[in-house]
Computed example of a mutant assay.
Amino acid sequence: MSEYSLIMEGMTERRFRFGTMAAGGRDAAAWTAAARRAEDLGFATLLTADTLATPAPLPALAAAAAATSTLRVGSFVLSVANRPVAQIAWEAASLAFLTGDRFELGLGAGRPGGEADAARLGVPYGTPAERIDRLARVLDAVAAPPEGVFGGTGRPPRVLMAASRPRLLRLAGERADTVAFGVSPLAGEDDLAGLVGVVRDAAGDRFDRVELCSSVHVVGDEIPGWLSARLGMSAAEMAAAGSAALLTGTPQRMADVLRRRRDELGISYVTVPETFAEAFAPVVELLAGN
């Protein structure tokens, strides 16, 4: 039985798995090499964002899956504002089919800069309420593709939803397989606990089957200059704020933090940037599948 099957069957145990966020490479060879390296390091998933400054996520993920054998691939996350509902269902079913069900559909209702991307694509971005309503329709269409739309294997892909505000958190708790908490890099464990509470209330009896995901932005005491500029802060500032997105110390110490966080909050799926994949690999070795 695969590690993924064990995770899904034992979801009440909230077994660990880990993803790494990649943005592309200088060419196709570098991109597929990064996918193979993520697989070799023990990561469960290779994830990529949905921005016009990076390769289109679904073709990129198809290439990554073709270059690997066990690695799962996922959008983190696809903006529902940028595509028609039926198109998302069609492409998700197609990618699940082409990857042998190794595709995970990550969805979001918007992000900073998302409105500019929508404008460049010539599509209406919509209000927050309109985007959340569209996301709900996407969930319906992915679960049951509209008539005449290719349905792939007939097994809908696993759905991750990124959420930080109450309405979207409630929808994620009710409908998603995985909920990824989109919080400030300065957010601490108390902030995460509040979001978990909203998801728990919305999920009800299905809460034990909902996987909870958080992102670690920095591993270690140093941040590369480009990442510090993107985050708008230093590692010292994150540490002073008690950021849950910063892990420091030995691999065992990091593993202990994540194990406690899982036991107290239920967060068992952790993502890190590709920049820190090598540094984080010993933690993956200590915890993956446990």
Rank of each mutant, 00 (worst) to 15 (best):
G19A: 13
A236D: 11
E264F: 01
T45W: 15
A176G: 11
S234E: 11
D256Y: 00
D101W: 03
E264R: 13
G42K: 00
V123Q: 05
E174W: 03
R83L: 10
F97W: 15
V179Q: 10
P224F: 14
E285K: 14
A281Q: 02
T51Y: 01
D201W: 01
G194C: 05
L287G: 12
G106M: 05
A64F: 15
E91N: 05
M161R: 02
T51I: 00
P166V: 15
L246A: 09
V183F: 14
A277S: 11
R83Q: 09
E174P: 07
L47Q: 09
L61N: 06
A202T: 04
P112Y: 11
M21D: 05
S79D: 11
D140C: 07
R165K: 14
E211I: 10
G42E: 00
L58E: 05
H217E: 11
M161T: 04
A63K: 08
L160R: 01
A279F: 07
P185W: 07
E211N: 13
R17E: 14
G24I: 09
R37Q: 02
L61R: 04
D190L: 11
M21P: 07
F97Y: 15
L287I: 07
A180C: 07
W226F: 15
R14G: 05
R155T: 15
N82K: 13
E278S: 11
T12I: 06
E39D: 13
D201P: 01
T275S: 02
E222R: 10
D40K: 09
R206E: 05
T153M: 06
L47Y: 10
L47M: 14
A241H: 06
G114P: 13
L121W: 13
L105M: 10
A67W: 10
L286Q: 06
G204Y: 01
F18T: 08
P59V: 05
P282Q: 11
V199I: 09
R137M: 09
G225E: 14
H217G: 14
S2C: 12
R253A: 15
G110F: 14
S214D: 15
L6I: 07
A119L: 07
A187T: 09
V218T: 10
A236K: 04
S214N: 12
